[in-house]
């Protein structure tokens, strides 16, 4: 039986510089599971995410290999076919919630826009669906959020709005690109908890991060990337306690050191 998402021999090259940013990587993810891609900045994790979401400009990037979603190669789909999947079955949570939404359009309108594209709900029920998703994501004052512009909300609230969009469209796969980077500790914990709940409800979660603490909290599988290659894969608990690769060890040490410095400075 095929996995929900399967990446086969994915290679991404920046055409202008002929620089390979992702080198023939393979991994897969099944429903109700989570996979965390860990690595330093520039190791190719965001590029992997963006290629899975069809966000890389084919004029600038050469993408080869296969990205199979339920057995269908996403790289071969037409723009129209991709639009049906992206934002619906395959949802994306970008790195910076503060800049992810149109600053001149109210949150409710942007959510309605996404909902009407992916879910068959009558016009009268749409608003209720949006409000329910906002409430589910932990935004108690959903009506106010619905009528707010993005600049009127905090980073944590906006992150919740993005999670609400995922909940609203009943996504089967969530790809989150460093969703905790722009958040403080409290909001980071809340976001990770939201991802855990998503996973428990059967959604597959692929999270890209360089935040070890977030990876430990979410658990599941971990994949370590360096210079476009996968260097280690396994259970989060195993890799973080007994890493095999020297690069993974140095990453963990650097992360522990950073955490200690933070602790001392606090």
């Amino acid at each position: 039986m095929s996995k929900l998402i399967e990446i086969k021999q994915l290679e991404i090259i920046i055409k202008k510089e002929q620089h390979t940013v992702v080198r023939k990587i393979d991994f897969s993810l099944d429903k109700g599971k989570s996979l965390i891609i860990l690595g330093q900045s520039g190791c190719g994790k965001t590029m992997t995410c963006h290629s899975m979401m069809g966000l890389l400009d084919p004029k600038k990037f050469s993408i080869s290999g296969g990205i199979f979603y339920n057995g269908t190669d996403l790289l071969t789909l037409s723009a129209k076919e991709k639009r049906k999947l992206y934002g619906g079955e395959i949802a994306f949570i970008p790195q910076n919630p503060m800049t992810a939404l149109d600053p001149s359009m109210k949150i409710g309108k942007q959510m309605l826009e996404t909902l009407s594209l992916h879910i068959d709900v009558s016009k009268n029920e749409r608003k209720n669906a949006v409000l329910n998703a906002l409430k589910k994501s932990g935004l108690g004052d959903a009506e106010r959020v619905y009528h707010s512009f993005p600049f009127e909300l905090s980073g944590g609230m906006l992150q919740r709005v993005l999670i609400a969009m995922v909940l609203m469209v009943n996504a089967r796969l969530v790809i989150a690109d460093e969703p905790t980077t722009a958040l403080d500790v409290v909001h980071r914990n809340e976001t990770i908890e939201a991802f855990r709940q998503l996973r428990e409800s059967g959604t597959a979660v692929l999270m890209v991060t360089h935040d070890f603490a977030a990876a430990v909290q979410l658990g599941g599988d971990i994949m370590i990337m360096n210079e476009g290659e996968i260097i280690e894969t396994g259970k989060a608990s195993e890799i973080l306690t007994a890493p095999n690769h020297s690069y993974t060890r140095s990453l963990i040490e650097a992360s522990v050191l950073t955490a200690n410095i933070r602790e001392v400075s606090e």
């Binding site: 979401m53 069809g54 639009r83 970008p94 790195q95 910076n96 800049t99 992810a100 826009e113 594209l117």
Partner: peptide, 21 residues
């Protein structure tokens, strides 16, 4: 801008993104 990339990820067409956002 980031919101354009995210609008694409939400399934919006290029024309809609250009005209509505």
């Amino acid at each position: 801008c980031d919101y354009v990339r995210y609008a694409k990820a939400r399934g919006l067409s290029s024309t809609r993104i250009l005209l509505c956002h």
